[in-house]
Design a protein around this nucleic acid. Structure first.
Length: 494
DNA sequence: CGGATCACATATATATGTGATCCGGTGCGATATT
């Protein structure tokens, strides 16, 4: 293993590994499966790129967004690696055909779970020697695989049809339940877990009660005008991102934009790029914004509406303060807001009548298909495929059962979130408990959260100065405690 | 469930109130059309 540092220097120009990287690389090179839950920010891609250079063959990387694949390929090409390709809908038919024909010539292949399920793609992958099978942003398996993007739940199935190669799943935020989901869904064999704490001590957490729209908007405006940016504002609907932007523009904010899934691709890329380059101070967005936003100086994240789950909340606030400097997460909490996510959980799945009508329609006359929502249809077809031998009545019963379980599961997570908002104890310990971590309370200071005595005043104006970088010694020591380097909390075979 | 939007009525000629109605997040790939 002594040549690891040599490869590190040769291909990446680094003299030493960052925390966690070396161990993960070693596992893969030794042919072991691994799950890596690393603190947000730098160095995740090195965990698969370096073994990709050591092991013979082609590394396959599953990625959730075309934009992420393109980023990774561009990054590799900047480093002088030409044998990288993203197999996605950006390619023309001919380009794709040619790429599949010459597949073995690539060292890194990026693709979505949906592409992986295509027979032509899978057949081409079967013919080449795969060095490494990587799932990036692996929490998507748990977050989307059960309903929104069912192909995410079939990755493991496809993987077993390929030559046996070490498997790496990477994510920044996952509960124990999600880690288990990832492991079993990918059929990993005795994976080594590299799990680091989700705690981000430099992010102070605050919940401010706000009742009704007017109260919220005025509190938001106050916060935005006094806090130092750049900042993110998360809203629960597309219309809200647009509304808050026009409100804040009226009250004098200028470099601000909204972002949601309904925008043109070009527009989305533009806004993300402008925000990263510092041409925008503020982005009001839905949960569409986040993955692939590599910006390390975000100073605050405000939730204009509450998120539906704790792990989503952690992912969203975790976008702040990646530079290690003080940052804040504030939720404007209105207990009434729970109605929105509740409604969405209802709407996400077909009702029983719809399910039954659709199943009978495709069985009786496949040429006449009942028109239903695309997500509903995909969900039904995915599960109907697994119940091929049953008649439509039995399919209806079984799938309806699954729908009820999914809705129950999601509702439970939502109520956990609500419970966290309304529990009167340290916010951070509440979060850590949710992730199965024990909280070592000595590291909690008055910057921790609203229950530990955090106040907003010091964050107003120049953050660094008012938080004690150039002020009292006592504050400095408290900050040092907050920024202590995290140790891996789990590193064992499961 | 909350909010926005619109049609309509009301007491007066421009604004306000009421009820009906609609809508609400996340993205891959494929296909057809300009």
């Amino acid at each position: 293993m002594e040549n690891l540092s040599g490869v590190l220097k040769k291909h990446f120009g680094f003299d030493s590994f960052r925390e966690g990287q070396k161990e993960i690389v070693e596992d893969l090179v030794n042919g072991r499966d691994a799950i890596a839950m690393l603190p947000t920010g730098g160095g995740k891609s090195l965990c698969y790129q370096l073994p990709g250079y050591i092991l013979k063959g082609t590394a396959v990387i599953i990625s959730p967004l075309v934009a992420l694949m393109e980023d990774q390929v561009a990054q590799l090409k900047m480093n002088g690696e030409k044998r990288a390709i993203a197999l996605n809908s950006f390619l023309s038919f001919d380009e794709k055909k040619s790429a599949l024909f010459h597949l073995s010539e690539y060292r890194f292949i990026f693709l979505s779970p949906e592409s992986l399920m295509h027979e032509r793609v899978l057949d081409a992958l079967k013919r080449i020697h795969i060095s490494l099978f990587v799932v990036d942003e692996a929490h998507c398996i748990s977050q989307w695989g059960h309903d929104f993007r069912p192909d995410y739940s079939l990755i493991g199935h496809a993987r077993r049809k390929l030559n046996k190669a070490p498997c790496l799943a990477m994510t920044a935020t996952a509960t124990e339940e999600v880690l288990k989901d990832i492991q079993s869904s990918l059929y990993m064999t005795e994976p080594i877990l590299h799990v680091y704490s989700v705690n981000r001590p430099n992010i102070s957490i605050m919940v401010k009660e706000a009742r009704g729209l007017e109260d919220k908007l005025s509190q938001l405006s106050e916060l935005v005008s006094r806090l130092e940016g750049p900042g993110l504002i998360y809203c629960a609907g597309r219309q809200w991102t647009e509304k808050t932007v026009s409100y804040l523009k009226e009250t004098g904010r200028k470099r601000i934009a909204f972002y949601h899934g309904g925008l043109e691709n070009e527009q989305r890329m533009l806004i993300q790029q402008q925000f990263i380059n510092g041409q925008l101070d503020l982005v009001c967005c839905t949960n569409a914004f986040g993955m692939g936003v590599n910006k390390n100086d975000i100073r605050y994240v405000i939730h204009f509406h509450m998120p539906a789950r704790m792990d989503a909340y952690m992912q969203e606030i975790g976008r702040a303060g990646r530079d290690g400097l003080p940052a804040i997460a504030i939720t404007l909490y209105d207990p009434e807001d729970v109605q929105l996510p509740l409604f969405m959980i209802e709407k996400e799945f077909p009702v029983r009548d719809e399910l039954q009508a659709y199943l009978s329609s495709i069985e009786i006359d496949p040429s006449f298909k009942l028109e239903i929502e695309e997500t509903h249809e995909r969900f039904i077809l995915h599960h109907a495929e697994k119940l091929k031998s049953k008649d439509w009545n039995e399919k209806t019963d079984q799938i309806w059962k699954i729908i009820q379980e999914r809705q129950q599961n999601k509702t439970e997570k939502l109520w956990n979130m609500v419970k966290w908002y309304s529990t009167e104890t340290c916010r951070r310990s509440g979060i850590l408990a949710h992730f199965g971590e024990k909280s070592d309370s000595p590291s909690f200071t008055r910057f921790c959260c609203d229950y530990c005595g955090m106040e907003l005043a010091p964050y107003y104006g120049q953050t660094k100065a008012s938080l004690g970088y150039e002020a009292a010694e006592g504050w400095k020591n408290e900050l040092k405690l907050m920024f202590k380097v995290s140790e891996p909390i789990v590193q064992k075979t499961k």
